[in-house]
Amino acid sequence: MPDAVADDVHKYSRERDLTPSESWVDVSTPTVRRWVKEAAQTLADELDEPRWRMVSSHDLRRSWATYHLVERQVDVRTMMSIGGWSDYSAIEPYLAEPTEARIGEAMA
Rank of each mutant, 00 (worst) to 15 (best):
P98F: 06
H58L: 01
R61D: 07
P93K: 06
L43S: 05
P30W: 01
V70Y: 03
R62G: 07
T29R: 06
L69C: 12
R34A: 05
T42M: 14
L18N: 00
R33I: 04
S23K: 13
M107T: 12
W85N: 00
S13R: 14
R61E: 03
P30V: 02
S23H: 12
G84Q: 11
S56Q: 03
M80P: 05
P50K: 03
L43R: 00
R62H: 15
D3Y: 05
W24C: 13
D48R: 14
A6Y: 06
A96N: 06
A44C: 10
E71T: 15
R102K: 08
R77G: 12
T31M: 13
P93A: 08
L60T: 01
E46D: 10
T42E: 11
V32E: 03
W85M: 03
P2D: 11
S81A: 14
S13L: 09
S81V: 09
E100K: 07
S13N: 08
S28Q: 13
V25G: 01
D45M: 09
A4N: 09
V76H: 04
Y12A: 08
W35R: 02
G104E: 08
P93Y: 04
P30E: 03
Y12P: 05
S21I: 15
H68F: 09
V27P: 02
A65V: 15
L60H: 00
P20H: 04
Y67C: 10
A101S: 08
D59Y: 00
H58V: 02
R72M: 09
T42R: 13
G104A: 10
G83A: 15
W64F: 14
M54Y: 09
M79L: 15
R51N: 12
M107A: 10
Q41I: 00
G84C: 12
E38F: 01
D26K: 07
V70A: 06
M80V: 13
R72S: 08
R53H: 04
T42F: 14
S57W: 00
Q73K: 15
M1R: 03
A101R: 05
A39P: 01
E22L: 10
P98H: 07
D8V: 15
L18P: 01
M107C: 07
E100Q: 10
T66Q: 08
P20T: 06
D75H: 11
D17Y: 13
R14C: 04
S89V: 12
R33W: 04
I103G: 12
H58S: 05
L60Q: 01
D75G: 15
G83D: 10
E92Y: 07
A90E: 11
S28K: 10
E97Q: 04
A4M: 10
R61M: 08
P30T: 02
A4L: 13
K37L: 00
W24N: 05
P20Y: 04
S63E: 10
H10L: 14
V9L: 14
S86T: 13
G104S: 12
T29F: 08
T99C: 03
D3W: 01
Q73Y: 13
Y67S: 06
W64R: 11
Y12Q: 05
E46F: 04
H58D: 02
D59F: 00
T78F: 09
W64L: 09
T29V: 11
E22R: 08
D75M: 08
W35D: 01
S56F: 01
S86M: 11
D45L: 07
D7V: 14
R34S: 02
D8Y: 15
